[in-house]
Write a protein that binds this DNA or RNA. Structure first.
Lengths: 231, 231
DNA sequence: AGTTGAATTTCGGGG
DNA sequence: CCCCGAAGTTCAACT
């Protein structure tokens, strides 16, 4: 990995065109040829970048560029697409290289699949007498997150989201439409379950007779922990 | 901006939990307190990070951490949420600071609004005799990208995307439902126009009687350029 | 400030 | 390999 601090301008040509005027920035060149252009602010997204695999070629600037004060020109060419990043370096303030090795990668906990597993294990969170039919119930238009039965024996389709948005309600509506054509399942009720549900999504769900349930992941994990400890 | 290369492990606690085992990585500390943790690979997204505004506190490791070889511990606390990033530095291989100043920011060309402008200017791309009614035709549920008339005088609602996905078809469907209630406009036909249309979106669109059109941005821009030069 | 929709999205999983 | 959906999405525009 190479770290360069330089006064530079940057042009990107590819899926769109973009330009960065002359300013001092951090350039990160990774060993797979990818390049990140960062300013001293904003969040994790670079101002501009080239995705790997890519190759960096260093060119001597032509006469016109020299007159503009360009000391060195980088052409970062994507290996797979014709995207190209051109960096005009006017002044290099720092330039170091470092051996990092391969990274073991990130371990996550608390994503949607965890939520789904927990809700399937603790299906009675939705009400007494609920029983699980199965997770990832496959239909022609995609898998229903959880299919269950309520205490009266009626089928319930559950759509699970971390953040409940209008799209999720649309998705569940399509599933319900399809499931209700199956006489072995019909009538199928819908439950929209999420850690947080947007007001608009809630209104749309109610309008379509879909119940909304907000889930407390920490509490569910807590129950899970207790169960793990006890048994 | 501070650049640190260190052998470190990282833990994130916030909207989810995540852990990075001990390895050598780049740590970027920006002046707004945000921190990026990058490996020497992958694309522009860091392995982990803290969004600004945030504050970095350096702690002396406790006894247990010292035994594990932790030389220094960083706690990066988000100012707005209770998200927290903890970096255990075992060995610092590089540590420099740099003054970058404020960045003038990125200038883009070729995003959806450009496509919309081009299609509105070249509405006959959709067929001979098409005329523009207006761009951004406002309705109660949001603006229709383009409203036009075909050669027979019938109203056409056009939804424009760079990448045509199922969501766009749903969106256009909602617009059509609403527009067709207006007797001055009805009957309104739908066209789903995008640079690329996903097969599933195409099927759904056809099922609902919506025409699909793929757009060639470069060609449209070319026509635009020629027109600009001629007139 | 909250909401909505796009993104050079990136990333991961499943067929 | 492509396709699809989730993301600590981020980002910008608009209400």
């Amino acid at each position: 990995m190479r770290l360069v601090i330089a006064r530079c301008s940057v042009d990107y040509v590819g899926r769109l065109k973009a330009h960065l005027p002359l300013a001092t920035r951090l350039l990160v060149v990774k060993s797979d040829g990818s390049v990140l252009v960062h300013s001293d602010g904003g969040s994790y997204k670079p101002l501009n970048w080239m995705s790997p695999p890519a190759t960096l070629r260093v060119l001597s600037p032509d006469e016109a560029d020299l007159e503009d004060g360009v000391a060195e020109q980088w052409t970062v060419q994507s290996a797979k697409t014709d995207d190209r990043l051109i960096v005009n370096l006017h002044e290099v303030l720092h330039d170091t290289s470092h051996e990092l090795g391969v990274d073991p990668g990130l371990i996550k906990d608390g994503v949607e699949s965890d939520l789904q597993r927990l809700l399937a294990e603790q299906i009675e969170t939705l009400g007494a007498g609920y029983t699980l039919i199965r997770r990832e119930y496959y239909t022609a238009i995609g898998p229903v997150d959880i299919l269950a039965r309520d205490s009266s024996g009626a089928t319930v389709a559950i759509e699970l989201k971390r953040r409940g948005d209008i799209d999720g309600v649309e998705q569940l509506t399509r599933y319900l439409e399809l499931l209700n054509r199956d006489p072995r399942l019909a009538p199928v009720r819908g439950i929209f379950a999420a850690q947080q549900i947007k007001p608009q999504a809630r209104v749309l769900a109610q309008d379509r007779g879909i119940d909304c349930v907000t889930l407390d992941y920490d509490a569910m994990r807590g129950v899970d922990d207790v169960e793990s400890r006890l048994f």
